[in-house]
Design a protein around this nucleic acid. Structure first.
Lengths: 97, 97
DNA sequence: TCATTATTTTGGTATTTAGCGAAATAACAA
DNA sequence: TTGTTATTTCGCTAAATACCAAAATAATGA
């Protein structure tokens, strides 16, 4: 879960997530729309996959990336935890935050 | 707003926010509970302040840090945007994500 | 098999970050 | 003014990160 925050800390990766929210896209399509090389993008994909924020599916040589909505929901739940009441027993474990 | 994600990407800073959720604390109190030096913590405080995630108040030489709940709420709203429907007109601007 | 297309890995550099200890600043009391 | 306590700034090193171009891998069709 800690990986998720790291993944979200990059503007390029947030932009990728934004595009994937609209629709699934291939690595090439994403590269066409961003001003970084495909090799750099591949590194960003690895970070997003490590955070489980995206999932992939292969069709021939083409790999399609999709947003993993459930993990985004998990992050939301954690953020809500930073808001709610201050009752210690309701707080998530330190290593989850 | 982009600063917020960067601020949240550090485990130490997330731990600080977790402690501030329970109650306001001074820099020294926080340092006593974490295994980093006060000078290192001061750097983390600067990041949290730049992201507007915390606010400070001074009493003599003692500076107290508090969670800025409203910004946490803003982040939540943005995260919800990554979830909801895929209608382009409802999407936040690229530079907000 | 050979060529083509899509994507990832490798090797390299430049920038950013986290961390420390020591010095500096700030507020206040004696 | 001098000393004390609380916090920040400075100077530094080590580790992590982003980026690119070139080489490597993978899947498929001719």
């Amino acid at each position: 879960m800690a990986d998720v925050f790291h993944a979200l800390s990059s503007p390029v990766r947030r932009q990728i997530l934004k595009m994937l929210k609209a629709r699934d896209m291939t690595a090439g399509e994403i590269a066409d729309r961003l001003s970084v090389t495909k090799s750099t993008l591949s590194g960003h994909f690895n970070v997003l996959k490590a955070a489980d924020l995206v999932v992939t599916s292969r069709d021939g040589t083409t790999i399609t990336y999709s947003l993993n909505t459930s993990v985004v929901e998990d992050v939301l739940t954690l953020m809500v935890g930073l808001l709610g009441n201050s009752d210690e027993k309701d707080m998530p474990d330190a290593d989850k935050i």
